[in-house]
């Protein structure tokens, strides 16, 4: 039986400036799932994600990671839940690809040898090892996203959370990134991915959550929700519109 990694219990978070945010959201995440969190811009997807590793605290409710409350175990939460942000450029810290990927395990206080071992392995797995001495600013969009994943993988997370990972990527970059995400899922990582364009990854998702105006309005297998997504400002995949079976995005 699969076990729950994340349990979100009735969380709300209201921004005082806009009055928007999250309202009474509850769900749990099992190990090995591939979850799409869909919703139009401003629906609260990024706010929800920032609660998962303690970057934001809920106004009410609580989040448990492996049964531990995130608010009192922030370091643990950040190690277990790796976060990849939408803007790849703004999360690059290192001056070389290697230095950037090593940033997380260095923060964890690991030994020099362990940091080197983990970083080399993660860069090799994501096909970036030949670029290890390059300035990250010289990488393509797809390579930068893969570097962000490598930077998180070095911390050995159970869950990888990706906030709009395909934004601003060309076809080749999207394809490379999608392969990397599928590989992560196959390697046992739980994937939670937010998007307003579900076409690219719906085929592989085991579950879809729809967030609308800060509320969780649907939570089911993707095939059961496809016909309803347009009500919430999400485009229905072409194949579904044409009455065909969903195919893998290529």
């Amino acid at each position: 039986m699969r076990q729950n990694i994340i349990e979100i219990k009735d969380i709300s978070h209201i921004y005082s400036t806009t009055g928007r945010g999250l309202k009474n959201i509850s769900f749990s995440v099992e190990s090995g799932e591939f979850i799409i969190v869909a919703g139009k811009n401003g629906s609260g997807k990024s706010t929800l994600f920032r609660h998962l590793n303690g970057l934001l605290s809920p106004t009410s409710g609580k989040i448990l990671i492996h049964g531990k409350d995130v608010s009192s175990n922030i370091r643990y939460a950040r190690q277990v839940v790796g976060m990849i942000f939408q803007d790849a450029d703004c999360q690059i810290v290192g001056q070389t690809v290697f230095e950037d990927a090593a940033f997380g395990p260095e923060n964890l206080g690991l030994s020099f040898e362990e940091v080197n071992k983990r970083t080399t392995k993660a860069l090799a797995e994501l096909g970036l090892i030949h670029l290890k001495d390059q300035n990250p600013a010289t990488l393509s969009g797809g390579e930068k996203r893969r570097l962000a994943i490598a930077g998180v993988l070095t911390m050995r997370p159970d869950v990888v959370v990706l906030d709009e990972p395909f934004a601003n990527l060309d076809y080749a970059g999207t394809s490379e990134l999608l392969s990397a995400i599928l590989w992560l899922n196959k390697a046992g990582h739980t994937i939670i991915l937010s998007t307003h364009d579900i076409e690219k990854c719906i085929f592989w998702a085991s579950r879809m959550l729809i967030i609308h105006e800060g509320r969780l309005v649907a939570d089911d297998k993707p095939q059961y929700l496809l016909k309803d997504v347009e009500k919430f400002g999400i485009r229905e995949p072409c194949a579904s519109k044409l009455g065909m079976n969903i195919m893998a995005w290529r």
């Binding site: 970057l55 976060m83 703004c90 810290v93 940033f103 997380g104 260095e106 020099f112 911390m155």
Partner: peptide
């Protein structure tokens, strides 16, 4: 704006002022 985003990204990778330095 970029500085804000960078700080959030650094925090999510466990950065803190007393970060142990490998080297």
């Amino acid at each position: 704006h970029s500085a804000d985003k960078l700080i959030i990204a650094m925090e999510s990778r466990c950065y803190n002022a007393n970060r142990p330095e490998v080297n």
